[in-house]
Design a protein around this nucleic acid. Structure first.
Lengths: 358, 358
DNA sequence: CTGAAAGCGCTTACAG
DNA sequence: CTGAAAGCGCTTACAG
């Protein structure tokens, strides 16, 4: 084990010489060993093991013209949020299972930048470094057009896409049934007797808009009026939730349940309710969206939400992308993953007072 | 722009022909352009732009025998926690600035697995795919020995290392002054008049032990007795914090301030205090460790903590690793990054009652 | 400063 | 089933 072989500079030629075969045979053994006799195969494998042979990645990529590597591209986000970590884990699991590596990279571009002026990250620029792109974060049409023109295979995480995922050329997209999730959550609250259920979220953003639509379907089906509150003057979703809750408490809406556009909105709402001494779920029921890991750290009460299948979305993106690598002319596909209502401690019956008033 | 060149299959040879130069000259222009006349250089660059030339990564790696790629190895963790996301962001920023790409990979191994039996992830196994490793997560001595034997350059995030970071062979390590941080936090609480400050954390774990030591230094310097509480029968740090707080409240310790071993412990403690109706900081002051992003979602009160320079640690790991790539025989180095007390709303003066009793 | 050529370490038709 | 050889697209001494 102390021989020079351990330094890893053994080549296929040295293996061939030591095993008394040609380099082609060694290569065949390395790559699935079709058309190699069992005896030869065993002999070659023994030498490979003895000399601690490790193939050279660069040489392979050059000869094969494929890298067996995907790029996870986080677009237009300063850094990775918890939100995307689970998706990355799903991407990793599916990639590793298929023998692919994953390069992690950032990339910022404006939605109105001209297609030809978009400068991709260096690793994506190079030929043969990356086989396909997994686009996460906030993406726009101009980028997808650019990739289609460059004929770089890609798959898009729909959540942060500003366009219609069914109108994509040259690539696939994976999304989720967020509208259906919020619809179910709202229907559940209504079935508990809540009459005034309020939606809190910034409907200017596409994903909140889809959830707002689901909420409305449920409210209308119950013959009630949709109620929405949003104060976006703060910074992020958390601030917005906190300030919107202030308004709700100050106004005369009389809500007994809140459907938050996402989990951070819910956490902001909860913060205000706590500060104002409003008990959950005693005086107010609460449901969020995403089932983000952060909810783990709120146990009094535990928080209800809609599970977003982020891990599965990551895995599915890889599957679609690898299928496209096999056949570049596949038509664009859009897959929407199911969501699931997770009822925890923050949902309760209608408060006594409100029930009699209504 | 619609020509075949856009498909990206232009080689250096075609550039050479079109520019009436040799391939060597094109290569020189591509790589810093030393010893190339301005005129030639301009001509070659024009052709490169016109034909939309993109170098082939595999060919470069083969010829250069370097990949300009680092691997971020998350060891012995089922997935990435928020804890490590910031470190990854630091790694990314520093790598990109130096023209390096980052491959993200998982890897599990036991602390007692024999060195020779450790099977690294495929991408690390290959030669020429990865120039060096950035080890994050939970790591053990056997792994580092294995890497040293294979002569793979690496840098270790000390936080999850079970051994002494000053005893590493063949690689570097980056840690932080966690003891000093906890010492400062404890001293701050004592200076506010708190007499019974309690440490909550599992001192069986190396990082908690370092913080416990810092806490003790401050307590002893003030002539007081260290107090520690830990109930590890639950699952993670959060559960441990919650259960330990139950014990504290049930016991006769009379603490008025708690130094938590990390932020999750603090969140668990907070959850119990809330449930039991103990106000923060009115009846109990609280300080954590890490300044993890999760704290953002607790605003009533905002939570004090010790900032762990995770981003900077990530960046520093890259710096050390690249230095080592330049000179493989560099002696092992250990860098410890400073921490910083972040005082927010969860720290207050001693409660009236306690002050008089003590 | 520049060109012709060897060499990096694989894979893959092509013969046999 | 197997070997000899071409070829993948770069970089880098080596001459000039």
């Amino acid at each position: 084990m102390g021989d020079p072989a351990a330094r890893g500079d053994v080549t296929i030629g040295e293996i061939a010489r030591a095993a008394h075969v040609g380099t082609g045979t060694v290569s065949r053994v390395l790559n699935g060993a079709e058309h190699v006799s069992a005896a030869t195969r065993a002999r070659v494998l023994a030498v490979i093991r003895r000399l601690d042979y490790r193939p050279h990645a660069g040489a392979r990529r050059l000869a094969r013209n494929t890298a067996r590597t995907l790029a996870f591209v986080m677009a237009n986000r300063p850094s990775m949020h918890m939100y995307n970590v689970t998706t990355l884990n799903g991407v990793m699991a599916a990639s590793v299972a298929r023998g692919y590596s994953v390069v992690y990279t950032h990339f910022d571009y404006g939605p109105r930048r001209k297609v030809a002026d978009i400068a991709l990250p260096p690793i994506v620029q190079e030929r043969g470094a990356i086989d396909g792109l997994i686009l996460v974060g906030i993406n726009h049409r101009n980028m997808l057009d650019h990739l289609a023109r460059l004929e770089i295979p890609f798959v898009l995480h729909q959540a942060g896409y500003s366009g219609d995922p069914r109108q994509i050329r040259g690539g696939d997209a994976v999304g989720m049934e967020d509208g259906a999730g919020t619809e179910r959550a709202t229907a559940h609250l209504l079935s508990l007797g809540h009459r005034r259920v309020c939606f809190v979220g910034d409907v200017a953003l596409p994903w909140f808009r889809r959830r707002w639509a689901g909420y409305r379907r449920a409210v209308r089906a119950a013959g009630r009026t949709p109620l929405m509150e949003w104060d976006g003057s703060g910074g992020d979703s958390f601030d917005g939730g906190a300030m919107s809750a202030e308004r709700l408490l100050g106004g005369r809406r009389g809500c007994t349940a809140i459907v938050a556009g996402d989990d951070l909105v819910m956490l902001g709402v909860l913060d205000t309710l706590r500060r104002r001494g409003v008990t959950v779920p005693g005086e107010m029921s609460l449901v969020g969206f995403g089932d983000t890991p952060e909810l783990r750290y709120q146990q009094s009460p535990t928080l209800s939400t809609i599970r977003a299948p982020r891990f599965e979305i990551g895995a599915r993106m890889v599957t679609l992308l690898l299928e496209r690598l096999d056949d570049r002319r596949l038509p664009p596909r859009y897959v929407s993953m199911p969501t699931e209502l997770v009822v925890r401690g923050s949902i309760g019956p209608v408060p006594r007072a409100a029930a009699t008033v209504a």
